[in-house]
Design a protein around this nucleic acid. Structure first.
Lengths: 224, 224
DNA sequence: TATGCTTTGGTGACCAAGTCACCAAGGCAC
DNA sequence: GTGCCTTGGTGACTTGGTCACCAAAGCATA
């Protein structure tokens, strides 16, 4: 019991024993390969997913066919917004895609509902996750409206770079992430290159001047 | 009992009698004048508000000092996103301002928590409200990223016009509503005027050619 | 290995929108 | 009335998004 996945979630470790075991028995661990569509518009979500490994990218298809990146769910977080739709029996308008191989604890509607009813700790966990997600959305809107593209791109590069400082993404992908066009990414990256902050090769960007990017991000009164 | 405010909320009318009376006894009707700040960042929300009369505008102050309009709560709806913060004991990052005189049923945290625990119908009400709000935010992001300003302004004018077709708002206010600059509103309105769709006077816009605005909105594959 | 297709990235021209600086007219307080 | 503040208008300029291309890199396969 003491090695349960439950302990990977800060808000859940305080659960009393009876609730813990109901949660463990009433849920199951699932694994899906990278690229899997985890949920999609028009398809009712039946499970709340708590991510154990990997990342899930949540985006929305616009009426015009293009896509907007909304947020990314990391290990230790939950796809909590789907719960609204689970309990409301409404369709979700965004889709979620496994960016890497993913494993997660899947809590079916029945278990979820029962835990929300029984456990104040579980309720707090769920609403805290909500609150964080919603705040993130607010910040996203703020960024889109007021922040310059070069600052947003710099921040995103720093966020996506691996230990070696390499970002594995095409210009087109970076474009969708930031809700802009590929050309804009190309132009901005050329500018970053000119300043000696990045090197480019096909499908990846090497961050060579973290400090410069960081200075740019900080200079715009930005946070995180 | 049959004239209770509860019946103004579709999702609540199915509440069983014991829950209904708990809700009525555990909440109170409050009224505030137009312009009141109903909740603000850094101030914990203590009540879930169910709006009976009036409208509340929810916006966020950005780091740069400017404001982004997020959404508007109408009579018959709830400021449900504040519940996330109520139960998560976290601060809300947006502020809510009464646009008109407002009356609302205020449900304190204690009552809210107890109802969520006891009543599946109440849970569904809450999560449905969430789901709608979140979907709205997604649509907003989509609009901001992909929709042209003239289309967005046209849609907003149609939405804000009273029965006489008059919108009471300065260019600056319309600017914040759409997350753009006053100048852009001025220019776009001049263009609408040139096309005979609106007349302007200080602090208000008269919609004289609904059909034209509607055509513009429809032409861009927009909904609602 | 040559041939062609697809993916990725680069570029110039153009348009839409945000920013800046400034001015003019309307309304209000005194 | 006089001055002040709010509201709206305008031109010049920058940033970002769109469109139409093209070139180079990778890949399949004949």
């Amino acid at each position: 019991m003491e090695d349960s996945w439950i302990d990977r979630f800060k808000g859940l470790s305080r659960l009393p024993d009876d609730i813990r075991s109901e949660l463990e028995k009433g849920s199951q661990i699932v694994s899906v390969p990278a690229g899997t569509q985890i949920f999609a518009p028009g398809q009712t979500a039946d499970n709340l997913l708590l991510l154990l490994e990997g990342t899930v990218r949540v985006q929305q298809k616009s009426e015009t066919g293009r896509e907007v990146f909304l947020y990314r769910v990391h290990a230790g977080e939950s796809c909590v917004l789907t719960t609204a739709c689970m309990l409301a029996f409404e369709d979700y308008s965004a889709d979620g895609i496994a960016e890497t191989d993913v494993s997660a604890a899947a809590i079916p509607r029945r278990t979820f509902d029962s835990l929300v009813a029984k456990s104040p700790v579980f309720r707090e966990f769920v609403f805290t996750a909500y609150s964080r997600r919603i705040t993130d959305l607010f910040t996203l809107i703020d960024d889109i409206v007021f922040q310059r593209m070069d600052v947003r791109l710099a921040a995103r590069l720093l966020e996506l770079a691996d230990e070696a400082g390499v970002v594995h993404a095409t210009h087109a992908v970076l474009g969708t992430e930031l809700g802009t066009a590929r050309e804009v990414i190309s132009r901005t990256l050329s500018e970053f290159h000119r300043r000696g902050w990045v090197e480019q090769s096909r499908g990846e960007v090497h961050v060579t001047g973290r400090a410069g990017l960081e200075r740019l991000v900080r200079s715009s009164g930005a946070q995180a």
